[in-house]
Design a protein around this nucleic acid. Structure first.
Ligand SMILES: [Zn+2]
Ligand SMILES: [Zn+2]
Ligand SMILES: [Zn+2]
Ligand SMILES: [Zn+2]
Ligand SMILES: [Zn+2]
Ligand SMILES: [Zn+2]
Length: 565
DNA sequence: GAGTTTGAAACT
DNA sequence: CAGTTTCAAACTC
């Protein structure tokens, strides 16, 4: 059983990969999610066989790398792995070593389980390595229902390795092999059942992609104690190479203790790839980090919550509320873009791979992922007028476009998502056969035009949906229910090295990047073995607010409330 | 790599 | 809550 625990931790790391797999599974299977019964997803642990275990990790070798240049500027003490990029890099390393890991997989409701077992070759994943971290969507196309992204995410490599972008088609990854139990490389085993008892304690997801850094612990509780153990250094194992691959922040003045820092914002410690100066976001300064974090959280409870949530399905299943359906994924707080027309990553919505929503206050929005207007609802009259008049934010003409167009499809997700209409994309999302297939909505001209014309209609149509939740939530207090906390386990998790920590259950927090995992409402909760914290209702879920809260509080509490101090 | 642009975060 | 400043990423060259 211990193994399980360990696995869990590992899982966290790999989570992404797993997620990816799952998604694929799901996808392949097909099923699209539609298949899913509903929501209840379950979590499975799957084992990847990687190689041996890390226990060894401490190997001497590490030293070499450790040195790491940056000491001064950043001393990252961390270990290593720093970069496991988001995704799959881990795998690679593993290949070499062969470790087994388990991943959590969320499964969709019951039926699915069978399919669950598929395996993916590691290689595939590895390819993606860094993938772009941020784009969450990629990784989890449909498999999971809800996902929360932290916009901040980290990891990502900016440009460098983007190649990975999509999951390499090649691999395709998962083969349905039945149970391969171990493959040398790493495959997933399906353990479907295991996990049942495994008891996982918690874990939700991976932390950051790059993980290595490890998230911080938000909880203090035990934190102080053990958290850091130096030994872990596993180095990337071999990966060193890419060390850079995942670059993360490069803060100069914030000491990485403000939300300006992507690492901090994502809930992870800075690590090797960071090129920050005067960094305080390291395990050694854990106390400072935690206290700062609390302050910020106090000020804005949602500060560390995933900024973007994606629910793919939305309405499919009965959806609980037809109303919600609409958007499925959106940036919670919305963007406020003025000049970028939401066509570049300056826009958090775009960056997060989601369309703009009614929460956005952007001007001349051309978000390739769709957009919902909203603004205040305009009376019909207004609408028309607006359409004509340039005023309307959304419909701008081509003026900007030209500029924006330039890149055309940058965003990885775009490829994935065929968005047609502004928001239908949800549905489309589900449908996506594979990642690669579809192309973006092609925001550029064509689309714009159409949108324009149709816009009015579209909007109208769409609007109906939106309101209920949003309004509610909004009115509520702005913050919905979600549970903001993100905690990551201290390094341990990331490192996986130790298991020890899990006092209560810590949970890891959601994924910054990609998989957000929020299983979504219904499923979500159930899923979690014990209590995983997912952000319960990012989406606004039904009302469960109260209920949720209670639950949340349970785990959420730890972070803030408990405060060590 | 340096320099510019951008919009969120922080501050007032 | 709005206006301003600060900040680091995204982007450009
Ligand atoms: Zn930083
Ligand atoms: Zn950093
Ligand atoms: Zn830092
Ligand atoms: Zn925007
Ligand atoms: Zn937006
Ligand atoms: Zn927009």
């Amino acid at each position: 059983m211990d193994e399980h625990h360990r696995g869990v931790h590992l899982a966290a790391q790999n989570a992404e990969s797993c997620g990816y797999l799952l998604s694929k599974l799901a996808g392949d299977g097909g099923v699209s999610d539609g298949a899913y019964p509903t929501a209840s997803a379950q979590v499975y642990y799957q084992e990847l066989v990687m190689g041996e275990d890390q226990s060894e990790n401490a190997a001497p070798q590490m030293d070499a790398q450790e040195t790491i240049s940056a000491e001064e500027t950043q001393d990252n003490i961390y270990e290593a792995d720093v970069c496991v990029p988001l995704e799959y890099k881990v795998v690679e390393s593993q290949q070499q070593r062969g470790i087994r890991r388990r991943c959590l997989v969320f499964e969709a409701a019951g039926g699915f389980s069978n399919s669950a077992v598929k395996r993916g070759t590691i290689e595939d994943r590895s390819v993606s390595t860094c993938s772009k971290g941020k784009s969450p969507a990629e990784s989890q196309p449909r498999g999971l229902r809800g996902i929360g992204l932290h916009l901040n995410a980290l990891a990502l490599t900016p440009k460098g390795k983007m190649a990975c972008q999509d999951p390499p088609p090649t691999a395709s990854a998962l083969l349905p092999s039945s149970a391969s139990e171990k493959d040398a490389r790493g495959e997933l085993l399906c353990a479907g059942e295991n996990f049942a008892h495994s008891g996982g304690e918690l874990l939700e997801f991976p932390l950051d992609g790059c993980s290595a850094g490890g998230g911080f612990p938000v909880n203090d509780h035990h934190v102080s104690g053990q958290s850091v153990s130096p030994q872990k250094k596993r180095r990337k194992t071999d990966n060193g190479d890419d060390g850079e691959a995942c670059k993360r922040c490069s803060c100069k003045k914030s000491k990485c203790l403000k939300l300006y820092c992507e690492c901090f914002a994502a809930g992870v410690y800075c690590s090797e790839p960071c090129s920050c100066q005067g960094c305080m976001n390291k395990p050694i300064h854990e106390e400072t980090v935690l206290s700062t974090r609390k302050q910020i959280e106090f000020r804005n409870p949602l500060a560390f919550a995933p900024k973007v949530i994606r629910m793919s399905d939305a309405g499919l299943e009965t959806g609980e509320d037809p109303n919600n359906t609409p958007a499925s994924a959106r940036h919670k707080r919305g963007c406020n873009c003025k000049k970028s027309s939401c066509l570049k990553k300056y826009c958090e919505c775009y960056q997060g791979g989601v369309g703009c929503s009614s929460n956005c206050r952007c001007e001349s929005c051309k978000n390739a992922f769709g957009r919902r207007d909203a603004e205040t609802e305009l009376p019909e009259e207004m609408k028309q007028e607006e359409s004509d008049q340039t005023e309307n934010p959304q419909q701008e003409k081509e003026n900007d476009q030209q500029k924006a167009n330039v890149q055309g499809e940058d965003h990885p997700l775009l490829d994935l998502v065929p968005i047609t209409p502004p928001f239908d994309f949800c549905s489309s999302l589900l449908k996506l056969p594979n990642f690669s297939s579809a192309k973006p909505p092609r925001p550029t001209k064509a689309r714009s035009v159409t949108s324009r014309s149709s816009a009015s209609k579209a909007t109208a149509a769409v609007q109906p949906c939106r309101s209920s939740k949003l309004a509610a939530s909004a009115s509520a207090s702005g913050i919905d229910e979600e549970t903001p906390d993100i905690l990551h386990e201290p390094d341990s998790l990331s490192n996986c090295v130790k298991t020890t920590t899990s006092p209560n259950g810590k949970r890891v927090s959601p994924p910054h990047n990609a998989l957000g995992s929020s299983p979504n409402r219904k499923g979500g909760r159930k899923l979690i073995l014990k209590s995983i914290p997912l952000f319960p209702s990012l989406t606004g879920d039904t009302n469960s607010g109260s209920a949720m809260n209670s639950t949340d509080s349970a785990f959420c509490a730890s972070p803030l409330t408990l405060g060590p101090s």
